[in-house]
């Protein structure tokens, strides 16, 4: 159907008559009110849209920059402290009991830096202390309390722990092994050798040979050091 003004428009006579009378206009006051309203609305809108100064580089990219800085900080800490790195990567790191382990290991580390070379051997032995401290409940409580005592007691406790067939202690040992890496173990052995504590070095080397057969692999990063230490220990058997 045709939809335009030809079919539905008013006829010309009505249009003419209408135009003769279509003279009503709003009053000037009404015009002024509307125009003033329009001006006020625009003024308010402009006031609301205050031009903000352009954010500088640091402010504009504050989230990416802060994230990158945080990542850099964590990576740097991990590089500076490889022990933490190893512990974080280990399975036990996620377990709640690892928290006290870390806390306890920090303590001997601080002692080591303060105690200098004289007590370095003892301090290094204390790396193993968390295991003993961990086992302060149950049948090993006595041994654990010994760990906090004099160096000799400490050493013997460590050796006893290595030899122990107690299942609870064995479990703790397995946790310890999971935490202590090959590198740490070899370093420990190296320090025993360098401090000429041969009896302990022999025991530890035997233990390591049993529990860490991977050190015998040529491709292992600590294999060379391990071989040298074994040769040195063999000369003093």
């Amino acid at each position: 159907m045709k939809d335009n003004l030809n079919t539905e428009s008013v006829d010309s006579q009505l249009h003419t008559w209408y135009r003769l009378q279509a003279t009503e206009q709003p009053s000037e006051q009404l015009d002024d009110k509307v125009i003033a309203q329009a001006k006020a609305a625009i003024a308010n809108h402009n006031k609301d849209n205050v031009v903000k100064p352009r954010a500088d580089f640091w402010r504009q990219y504050r989230w990416p920059i802060s994230s990158a800085a945080s990542v850099m900080l964590v990576v740097t800490l991990l590089l500076v402290n490889p022990e933490i790195h190893d512990e974080l990567l280990s399975d036990d790191a996620a377990m709640p009991q690892s928290a006290p382990l870390l806390m306890q290991q920090d303590e001997p580390a601080m002692m080591r830096s303060a105690g200098q070379s004289e007590q370095s051997g003892n301090a290094d032995l204390s790396v193993d202390m968390p295991v003993i401290v961990e086992s302060t409940s149950g049948p090993n409580a006595k041994q654990a309390s010994m760990a906090n005592g004099v160096d000799d007691h400490h050493r013997s406790a460590t050796i006893e722990m290595m030899k122990s067939d107690d299942p609870v202690l064995a479990e703790n040992n397995s946790q310890n092994k999971a935490i202590i890496s090959d590198l740490q173990a070899v370093n420990h052995l190296s320090q025993l050798v360098s401090s000429q504590q041969w009896s302990e070095a022999i025991i530890l080397s035997q233990k390591m040979a049993e529990e860490r057969p991977q050190l015998n692999h040529v491709q292992h990063p600590q294999h060379l050091q391990w071989s040298k230490l074994l040769k040195a220990i063999a000369q003093h058997k």
Partner: peptide, 8 residues
């Protein structure tokens, strides 16, 4: 016409 316009 004016009259008719007013009538309209």
């Amino acid at each position: 016409e004016q009259l008719k316009a007013s009538l309209l």
